[in-house]
Computed example of a mutant assay.
Amino acid sequence: MRISAAQRTENENRIRAAMDRLLRGEIPPGGKCDIKTLASEAAVDRTAFYGSRPYAHLRLEFERRVQALRDAGEIPDPREAQIARLKAEVAKLKERLAQSEQTIDELTDFRSQVLARLTAQHEEIVHLRETAAGTGRVTRLPAARSATFGSCS
């Protein structure tokens, strides 16, 4: 079915208005910033945006404007912005988790080394005590007196 020039102009105006709304972030519930939602919002058949159909140039304009916003660091679709933010947060959390795991591994190794050293030192002390107790050449010093040393009367 052919449409008149006036109907075509009216459709193009509705498409452009819907395009502006979507690019401002006014996404309807369940929609996205895409051609399907654009067609739905403008009440135009989606197939009219493809091939040599009458509104293919508007699809190209819409895609160009969406890409320009993305290149500028803006994401018109709030859901896409939330997804991008959450992906960045997940990446940061994965990095923190990897650092935490590395720190835990390092501390576990350090703890093992410290326990091994303490055990070796304890065994050495026990051995030295046994050796000292078994020989008569070691003289025990008297316990220190409570009086202070170095005082002259």
Rank of each mutant, 00 (worst) to 15 (best):
E106Q: 15
V44T: 09
A91I: 08
R79K: 02
A43Q: 11
S100R: 11
A88F: 05
L60K: 05
E124Q: 11
T131V: 13
E95D: 14
V114A: 14
A132N: 09
G73E: 02
V126H: 04
T139L: 13
R46H: 08
T108K: 15
L141S: 12
T47D: 14
R111V: 14
P76N: 00
L69Y: 00
P28E: 04
R96P: 03
R140P: 02
G136T: 09
Y55L: 01
D34Q: 04
T108D: 12
I27D: 00
R85M: 06
L118K: 12
F62A: 03
T139V: 13
G136A: 09
L107H: 13
L86Y: 03
E95A: 13
V126S: 07
V44C: 00
A81K: 11
P76T: 09
A84G: 00
T108G: 11
D34W: 01
A98C: 06
D109L: 15
S40Y: 00
T47L: 12
R140E: 13
S52R: 10
R59V: 00
L115Y: 13
Y50F: 10
E101A: 04
A56N: 08
V114F: 08
D109A: 15
Q113K: 15
E101S: 00
R65D: 01
L69E: 10
R46W: 07
I104A: 13
L141I: 06
V138P: 08
E101P: 01
A56C: 06
A68S: 02
L58T: 06
L60T: 04
Q82M: 12
A72Y: 05
A81N: 07
D105A: 15
T135W: 06
A120E: 12
K87Y: 08
K92P: 06
I83Q: 10
L86Q: 09
T131R: 13
A84H: 10
S40M: 07
R70Y: 06
H127A: 15
A116M: 09
L38T: 00
A84D: 04
A39T: 02
I104E: 12
L93T: 02
V138K: 10
R96F: 09
R137Q: 14
A72W: 03
G136M: 03
E63C: 04
A88H: 09
R111L: 15
A72D: 05
H57G: 07
P28Q: 04
A43H: 10
L58Y: 05
D109F: 13
V126P: 02
A42T: 01
K36T: 09
L93R: 06
